[in-house]
C-alpha cells in the first residue's frame, strides 16, 4: 500500500501543494539585486502573504535566490551553500546578469551564464527587476512546483560531472567538502 504508485502520486500532490504554499528563501546577496528584496518582503509588496519567507541558513531554506552578478570568488561560496541545502531545493536567477552577464558581459571576473554552474529553475529578467516582477517570478516558481516540474536539483544530481567540470574550470583551487544528499 505504501509503495503503491497511485498512493505515492496522491502524497506528491499534497506535498507539492504544501511546498508551493511555503517557500523559504535564502536571499544570497551577491550583487546589487539584493536591494530589491527588502521592499518585496515589507509592507508595500508583502511576499509573506504568498507564504514566501526569509530563511536564515541554507539548511532551512528551499529557494536559493542569486541576486545579480556572481564573481568567480563568490561562485565557490554559492556552490557550497547550494550543496548544503536540503531537497527539494530550487534556484532563482535574479536579474539579467544571471542570464547572459548583463552589463558585466565583458567582465573578466564574473560568470556570465549561471545555468552552467547551478541548475536554475526560474529566471527573473530585468536590471533591476522590480518587486512586481520578483513576485511574478515567485508565482511562476509556485506554478512549477505545483505541477511537479521544478526539478533542477534532480538535474544537478544527474549531470553532476558536467556541472563539476564547469565549476572547476572557474575555480582553480578546489578545496570543498563532499556532501551526501
Amino acid at each position: 500500500m505504501i509503495n503503491d504508485k497511485n498512493s505515492q502520486k496522491i502524497v506528491d500532490i499534497i506535498q507539492n501543494w504544501a511546498r508551493k504554499q511555503s517557500i523559504w528563501v535564502l536571499a544570497y546577496g551577491t550583487g546589487c539585486g539584493a536591494i530589491e528584496i527588502p521592499p518585496t518582503m515589507t509592507s508595500r509588496y508583502d511576499a509573506e502573504r504568498l507564504g514566501v519567507r526569509g530563511a536564515a541558513t541554507p539548511r532551512q531554506a528551499d529557494v536559493l535566490l542569486i541576486t545579480g552578478y556572481l564573481t568567480t570568488k563568490t561562485l565557490k561560496r554559492v556552490i557550497r551553500v547550494y550543496e548544503q541545502m536540503q531537497d527539494p531545493k530550487y534556484v532563482i536567477g535574479f536579474g539579467s546578469c544571471t542570464i547572459n552577464g548583463g552589463m558585466y558581459y565583458d567582465s573578466y571576473n564574473t560568470i556570465k551564464v549561471l545555468d552552467k554552474y547551478l541548475p536554475v529553475d526560474v529566471y527573473i529578467n530585468g536590471c533591476m527587476p522590480r518587486p512586481e516582477s520578483v513576485l511574478a517570478g515567485f508565482g511562476k516558481l509556485q506554478e512549477l512546483i505545483g505541477n511537479g516540474e521544478a526539478n533542477g536539483a534532480t538535474k544537478y544530481k544527474e549531470n553532476l560531472e558536467w556541472y563539476r567540470a564547469n565549476q572547476k574550470k572557474i575555480i582553480p583551487n578546489w578545496v570543498m567538502p563532499e556532501y551526501n544528499w
Binding site: Q15, A18, R19, Q21, S22, D62, Q86, D87, P88, Y179, N180, W181
Partner: peptide, 8 residues
C-alpha cells in the same frame, strides 16, 4: 513541508 523535506 518541513516534514516532507529530506534530512541528510
Amino acid at each position: 513541508k518541513l516534514y516532507g523535506k529530506t534530512t541528510a
